[in-house]
Amino acid sequence: MRVTFTVNGREQVADDVWEGESLLYVLRERLGLPGSKNACEQGECGSCTVRLDGVPVCACLVAAGQAEGREVITVEGLADYARRRDSGVSDSGASDSGRSGSGERGAEHPGDGAGELSVIQQAFIDAGAVQCGFCTPGLLVAADEMLERNPSPSDADIREALSGNLCRCTGYEKILDAVRLAAARQEEAV
């Protein structure tokens, strides 16, 4: 079947989709957007968290056909999404954030690219919240959405909001640090 939906502000069409495919599979294997991760494919790890019409969901548990006509934000579009949110631009404008997933960006300079990253992304780097990084995309989408709803979360709020995202490397301490840091930086920016 054919599935047409919007990803990171850009309309995408996937053809020859098997009806049993998940939104996650279509993003990763058909649209060249492998940023959303495939750790468990049973809704138990949160590594595939994307926003479906604004709501954080596990992309592995959304049937591809259910995404028809809907808007999806993935980690690849998170910085752009945050930028538009912060500048008050509505969601309607299309933007070019559907990257090829080729990872061919070469030299990266943490800190130097700060302008390109959202607050939460930069905070994850700065706080040491990234180790293997496999849980990171899902955590970023979930944490960014929480800060959107709750700009000054308590530690318990952070823990609850991120309780659907497993991390096996960090013991979560630096993830908490990162979210606290992002909240503080957002408050400073206001």
Binding site: P110, F124, I125
Partner: peptide, 23 residues
């Protein structure tokens, strides 16, 4: 020094290519 990960930016943007991302 607590220098930051050189792969950090790739990992927070979803561009870091894991073995399951190969195509």
């Amino acid at each position: 020094e607590s220098t930051l990960r050189p792969d950090g930016t790739l990992k927070v943007t979803g561009e870091f290519a894991y073995s399951s991302d190969m195509w």
